[in-house]
């Protein structure tokens, strides 16, 4: 037992689970960036809020997984829209720096405001699933792995459908392409941007609940690192490009698992940032990105 092949396969499974979560968060980053060119630093913290709503639903209200997931997604979507309306909308014509700083401020607000409300203490997520572990040879996967992958796939298909075939989705693509022209064509730009935040936040909340289920613990600062890494995933795939976020998320999850698997878990976070910098230097528009140059 314990052959290198098994080890790699095991890390591959862990990596896909982790990567699915990153991908879900990365989608929100990429959609928001695509539409208003803002790095929504608070996105990881919306994920945290989603995790807490999920936790509240399962422990206090004794919901099962699916209703808890749906409630968390819905309430977080509302939160996302409120954040956009209060903090980002007044800055739509301000400098990039002002918007970025506001996003950082919003991130702090959610993290530490959250701490004031729910205390900094770590909470244990109830086990909503059987702790069954399936083993195939020396490779094990948990029931949770399967749930994560299935949930992610369903949500991504749903997102693809919304973006490609619904009126809102078409409006989103139009606004991200040219805000003014979309406006002239009768598209309500403000509502479309709100819809983007709602969708992104709902996906982040789903990721939050999945993290809670998978790792069992949640705390108010849990959004920071996955948030940053999901952002890196979005950049890796090409920011603003939806399939890029999915690809980037999976790649990030796999790389992280492999780095941990070969015994360098303390360097795991560094690996993520090194990837970010290498990508930015070699292919700043990401794996699936196109080159855009400034007009002189």
């Amino acid at each position: 037992m314990g052959s290198a092949g098994d080890l790699i396969l095991q890390q591959l499974i862990n990596g896909i689970s982790l990567g699915s979560i990153y991908a879900l968060i990365a989608l929100g980053y990429t959609m928001v960036y695509g539409i208003i060119q803002l790095i929504n630093f608070a996105h990881g913290d919306v994920m945290m809020v989603g995790a807490y709503i999920g936790w509240f639903c399962t422990t206090v209200l004794k919901f099962s997984f699916l209703p808890a997931l749906i409630v968390a997604m819905f309430l977080s979507a509302v939160l996302g829209v409120i954040i956009e309306r209060i903090a980002y909308k007044p800055l739509r014509n301000a400098t990039r720096l002002a918007a970025l700083i506001t996003a950082i401020g919003m991130s702090f607000f959610l993290e530490y405001g959250g701490m004031l409300i729910v205390t900094p203490q770590t909470r244990t997520f109830p086990s909503v699933f059987p702790q069954t572990v399936y083993t195939f040879g020396n490779v094990a996967f948990k029931y949770g792995d399967i749930v994560i992958v299935i949930t992610t796939v369903i949500l991504m298909l749903l997102l693809q459908f919304i973006v490609k075939y619904t009126k809102t989705g078409k409006a989103m693509r139009a606004v991200s392409y040219d805000k003014d022209a979309a406006n002239l064509m009768g598209i309500n730009v403000n509502n479309t941007i709100s819809a983007t935040f709602a969708l992104g936040s709902a996906l982040a909340a789903a990721a939050g609940v999945l993290i809670g289920v998978y790792f069992n613990t949640i705390d108010p600062l849990m959004g920071i690192m996955p948030g940053l890494k999901a952002f890196i995933a979005a950049v890796l795939g090409g920011i603003g490009i939806i399939p890029g976020a999915m690809l980037g998320g999976l790649a990030m999850g796999l790389i992280e698992s492999i780095v941990s698997g070969i015994g360098y878990s303390t360097w795991r976070d560094a690996a993520a940032f090194i990837i970010l910098i290498v990508v930015l230097l070699i292919k700043p528009n990401g794996l699936l990105g196109k080159n855009i140059r400034e007009k002189v």
């Binding site: 790095i39 990039r96 970025l100 940053l228 303390t266 976070d269 940032f273 090194i274 930015l280």
Partner: peptide, 28 residues
Amino acid sequence: VPTLRLRGDYLAIATLGMGEIVRIILLN
């Protein structure tokens, strides 16, 4: 030298990443 070729948000993220790498190196 390498990162200042990047613009705006990208530079911000790259420098943030650099700062974190320094921290993780010190941690180890």
